[in-house]
Design a protein around this nucleic acid. Structure first.
Length: 152
DNA sequence: GCCAACGTTGGC
DNA sequence: GCCAACGTTGGC
């Protein structure tokens, strides 16, 4: 079992959106490192810390799960999409996505400020200086700690 | 292959 | 709105 952290802006797609729609295609990722994680490493049933960025209280708001593994991101072929990539072809797609399902919303969100205070979480990748990656792997112990905090 | 210019992310 | 820290682009 592997664990991940995925960022989303609540204005765009929040944990409540995920809860009501049950699942979502993680399209629009246009960063090669994040793409590689989705394309190569994220497998069915891997659990995901659902992180909200660019908002009043950034932090982990719940848990998701990979329900469909890597497949081409359709928005790259759509000239009307913000994520259109003229260099991508159906034969040679450049961007991939996974599908993420809803698992739970935390009773108490685990804010970034709190993550910074908790000793056991001090080496989470999210805390690395200048980390802007929208998808990062999460260690087992970190996942457990965050979910414990979120449900307490 | 280098690197300056530019665009984006995301916390504050 | 500011700005640090990236990643990408494109001329050379």
């Amino acid at each position: 079992m592997k664990y991940w952290l995925m960022k989303s802006e609540p204005d765009v797609f929040s944990i409540d959106d995920l809860k009501s729609k049950k699942k979502t295609s993680w399209d629009g990722v246009r960063n090669y490192q994040a793409r590689n994680f989705m394309r190569d490493d994220m497998k069915k049933d891997h659990l995901v810390l659902y992180y909200h960025s660019n908002c009043d209280v950034p932090g982990v708001y719940g848990i998701g799960k990979v329900i469909k593994e890597s497949h081409p991101d359709h928005t790259q072929f759509d000239p009307k999409s913000d994520y259109y990539d003229p260099k991508a072809t159906k034969e040679k797609p450049r961007w991939f996505m996974v599908e993420v399902g809803f698992v739970e919303k935390f009773k108490t969100p685990v804010s970034l400020a709190e993550i910074k205070e908790v000793k056991a979480l001090e080496d989470m990748l999210i805390l690395r200086k200048g980390n802007r990656l929208s998808i990062t792997p999460v260690e087992n112990k970190h996942f457990e700690k965050v979910t414990k905090l979120g449900n307490s």
